[in-house]
Structures are given as structure tokens and as C-alpha cells.
Design a protein around this nucleic acid. Structure first.
Lengths: 221, 221
DNA sequence: CGCCAATGTTACCGATCTGTAACATCTCGG
DNA sequence: CCGAGATGTTACAGATCGGTAACATTGGCG
């Protein structure tokens, strides 16, 4: 346990195996960069166990890399957290574009599709609320991740509000905030009460809310 | 250390000072028991920094006690967490009785009063979502606190559902889950986006939801 | 007073955490 | 092929964590 038990003692925790990744010669011609592997592994572990519940050793282990490489790319674990949240935000931006392509100009359809996809994704074992989960656990107001989270949340609210306006519902601001509250509430309940909790009705509730706002505006047309 | 002004969260320890509390001789004739002080201090710190962000040293420091006394009353930190959550659940039960006394037999009034009080309390610096916050951070399915959380959430849902039934709204189950999602969503947003976020409209949204369900059932009477 | 239980104080253990140093190895363009 | 930079390996530093042992002190009660 002193010196040579190092490798054995490492294996008791999270470990990801891809065949023989140490042999890079003929393994995979397009193996992703260590930086990307580290970020992806960190995001997966952060989602499952929270940013405070995962250590850098587990991250580099899952990424099939090592601690030195991590600290050559990120000045600290907090820096890595910030990068993970930034990527989550960028994926969200791409997701908005995807929704726009699926329903060009149709804010109502984009909103309904959005909540439907969220409802479908609620069943996944890994909750997708990376940013909110991190916000709950990073209580320090000065933490650099807080500004990233806030910026992302503000951008999300702006975009949803724009969709609500495009949908020409009765009260766009109210529907926007209603949906945001419902979504985060569903994610939180899903994490604590599992699948059978109130989040099971999220799709029904959110869609009913959207239609309720849309119908009450139909009389004005 | 060419990062920004953010100091690593390792250095700053929480420390509470009350005059000269070490001198118990003439301090306070009815000083509460160390056990209660520890539990209260733990709950306050858990609310502010999360169960994983507070160490036992900070807890006994805030309780003006010491680690040995803590471990004479609780077998472990997890045991203390469970006790804190149990007390939160008991306070919630007392809160339901209080609402029943304020509006005897009137489920609708109890519901509206409930959401109004939650909205008022959202402004408090310490978020009151102890159980949900703990659930997010205790990702281990086998953690003893998980069963306490689940039991409490189920009881809460049963009670809210009963209130909705007593209110004789159109769809009691749907209103119940809608309110539960809105409430947790508001608490989560309040913690990440602060005051100006979507949680600012929580009272308006939740009350509108209640009235919407109540009105749609009024035609049946 | 004198006893006793509860509480406080100090010091420590082992595990784990973030982060680093020194050195070995690999990849890839010239 | 060769050399430079990126990456991997090993070992360790410093700090914090949960938890414990031994001992000192306090407060209440006969």
C-alpha cells in the first residue's frame, strides 16, 4: 500500500476502459485531444456526482489522461469547471439554432418542441442541468463560475422570451418565466424524487401552459 | 497566480464570533443544549453553503461547541445531516397545521396563502430548500438522507394534493404537480439568478395557476 | 462540600484533496 | 531520422477532511 500498490488502489473508483488506450500507435487514428477528453469526462462526472463530489484524480482517470496534462491546460479545477459550463452554454446555443432550423420563424412550435425534448430527456440517468447543479453547489459569490452561470441564464431567458414574443402569446414575459420555472422544477424533482415524482407530468403541464397562453391570445386576432 | 482576484476556496474558513461565549457563568441563564445549537448551526450553514461545502469544524465553531460533543450526539456527519433534514420535515408539518388553522377547511385559501408565503420568503438570503439542495449534492443513492428526503417529498405531495382536492379545482393532480414544479423552480432560479430572475414572478405565476384551475371548475358548480 | 455526568480542549490519525516537480515517453513536422 | 513540444509517470507537498483518544473543566444534585 505504500509504493507499489499505487495502480491497484487506483482501480477501486471510477474507471473507463476503451480497449487498450495506452497504445496510441494503432489504437484510433482520430483520437480526440487530451483536453477534450478531460473536459468531456469532467462534464459527465460533474453531472453524475456534482462539481464538489468529483476530484481531479477521478476526472483524469475517466479521461484516460493524467493530472499533469489537466493542469497544463487548466490553471485549476475551478478553471476546468468554468470551461465545462462554457461548453454547456455553447451546446445550448447550438440547440437553439437547431430548433430554429426545425421550425423556422415559428416561435410557438419551437417552444413546444423544446419542452417536449426536455421531457424526453428527463428520463436520462444523467440530469442535464449542469449549470443549475453547479450553481447550487458553488455558493461562493466570488466563484468565477457564477458569472458564467448568470450570463448563460440571462441569455436563455432572453431567447425564450423572444420565442414567446414570436409565438404572439397573450403575455410573453409571463409565459417565458412560467416555462423557466417549470423546467428547472422538473429537473430538480426528477433528481430527488426520481421518475414517478411531479416531473412525470412536466410535458403535460408545460404544454398546457403554452397552449393556455396561446389560446387566450387567439381571441385578439 | 496570475488568475483573477478569486481566492481558492480552501483558505477562507467560516468563523462566527459572539462576544465572549466561552464564559458560560453569567452568559445566558437558559442557554440551549449543545445538541440543539449544533443542529441549528448545521442547518444554517448547510443552507448557505450546501452539505458538502461545510465541514464539521465550521459547524461546531458556529455552534460555539466542539467536535467531540458533536460526535457524542451524532455518529457521523451524515447522521447529523439526516437529523437536520428530519427537523426541516417536522417544521414543514407544523407549517401545514398552521395553514389549516389560518384557513380551516378551505383548501383554496391554504394553497394561495402557502404560495404567497413562499414568495415572501424567497427574498430571504438563505434559501429554504434544504432538502432539495441536499438531494442535489448527495448523489449517492445509498445515502441515508435520500430516504428522508423522499419520504418528506412524498408526504408534501400528498398534502398538497389533498389541499387541491379540498379546493375542488378542475384537475387536482395537475394543479398539485404544477405548483410543486413552480415552487422548486423558483427556489432554484432564486439561488442562481438572484432576485431579478424568473423567480420574481413566482407569486404572480403560481397564483394565476391556482385561479386558472379554480375558475375552470367553477362552471361545473 | 464531593460526586458524576456532560461538555470543552488539545492533539492527533489516516484518508483525500488540489496542485507541483522531475523525469520518461510519445507524436509529428522538417 | 531527429529534435521539439506535447503527453504520460511517479512521487510528493501542503492543506483539509471526518473522526478519535486522553485529559481538563464545568454544572447540577445529594
Amino acid at each position: 500500500m505504500l509504493q507499489n500498490g499505487y495502480k491497484a488502489s487506483r482501480g477501486n473508483r471510477l474507471r473507463y476502459e476503451f480497449g487498450r488506450p495506452n497504445l496510441m500507435t494503432t489504437d484510433s487514428p482520430s483520437r480526440r485531444s487530451p483536453r477534450d477528453r478531460i473536459v468531456d469526462a469532467a462534464r459527465g462526472l460533474f453531472r453524475k456526482h456534482g462539481v464538489r463530489g468529483v476530484g481531479v484524480d477521478a476526472i483524469v482517470d475517466a479521461a484516460d489522461s493524467n493530472k499533469m496534462t489537466l493542469y497544463r491546460h487548466f490553471s485549476s479545477k475551478d478553471d476546468l469547471i468554468v470551461e465545462c459550463l462554457r461548453r454547456a452554454g455553447m451546446e445550448m446555443d447550438a440547440y437553439w439554432r437547431e430548433l430554429e432550423e426545425a421550425h423556422p420563424g415559428d416561435g410557438l412550435a419551437q417552444l413546444r418542441d423544446w419542452v417536449r425534448r426536455i421531457a424526453d430527456h428527463l428520463g436520462a440517468n444523467d440530469c442535464n442541468c449542469e449549470l443549475m447543479s453547479a450553481a447550487v453547489q458553488l455558493t461562493d459569490e466570488d466563484h468565477p463560475a457564477r458569472s458564467v452561470i448568470k450570463k448563460f441564464k440571462d441569455a436563455q431567458r432572453d431567447h425564450v422570451l423572444e420565442l414567446c414574443r414570436k409565438a404572439r402569446v397573450a403575455n410573453a414575459e409571463l409565459l417565458c418565466d412560467t416555462l423557466l420555472l417549470l423546467i428547472e422544477g422538473a429537473r430538480l424533482h426528477q433528481q430527488s424524487s426520481g421518475h414517478e415524482g411531479p416531473s412525470a407530468r412536466f410535458a403535460e403541464i408545460a404544454d398546457a401552459a403554452i397552449l393556455s397562453f396561446a389560446e387566450s391570445s387567439a381571441v385578439a386576432e
